[in-house]
Amino acid sequence: MRLRSVIRWEFLRTIRSKQFVIISVLIPVIVAIAIFAATSADKDAQQSLREPPPPSVVALILAMILFMGAFLSGVMTLYSVVKEKQGRVVELVLSSISAQEMMAGKVIGLGIAGLIQVAVWVAAAYFVASRFAPISLAALGPVHWITYPLYFILGFMLIASIYAATGAVMKDVQSGGASGLVGLIPYVPIMFMALIIENPNHVLVRIAGFIPPFTPSVMLFRVGVGAAATWEIALSLVSLTVGVLLTMRFAARIFEIGLLMYGKAPSVRELWKWGRMRHTR
């Protein structure tokens, strides 16, 4: 009941915020319309590719959009926590609900907003792409329809809980500190994206697919190029789920302690201590 109120509040606040309206809705819609207008003037440019692109290209673009969506929603979570901390709202909120409820409400509320954002992006991308090539989402097999939402949702929960904890120990949005770097770990595979796509079955890539912070991006690409075996997908989802649960528990502790601390940012060692604490403050 209260958790529902928190989710509703966080969701509505997010989709009404300027950032969300501009980044998630206005820019993609304007870009789509602009491209549409530019190409409709030039008949030759239309559907310059007569052949539909290979399914893996569609899948990889979708993977990229999903991962960007998870990333941006994660960043929104961080901003939302830092803002509430700076605005000193936290104390009042915590006199009504637990830090765990607060974090869960934020992650879920912003996650739903993130789903809407991704849906808008996918629709805009589909609209634009269909001007150039006869693409069809039917090119995606059931494996994509089943695994992509799961990788997106679990990936978002992983990133968002790391960011919620990061936001809780930050003094303001400017000061990142060592803890901010932790939030970048899930993006490491993106730097090696080309390598992963070219060598989706390299032993290091396959192993990385089972390591939770890397799982969402690596597996989105591997599934995208059709390289992942069913058992690999199943195992990666299990390890990702376990990773998400552990991360959320650890992050919730740090979140709870960090929220009401306004002093200097804690060291990595202190964070490790907090995360493993049984009793919280």
């Binding site: 605005g87 000193r88 936290v90 104390e91 006199s95």
Partner: peptide
Amino acid sequence: YLPEERGLY
């Protein structure tokens, strides 16, 4: 609770 450090959204 009315906290000493005031804060609202």
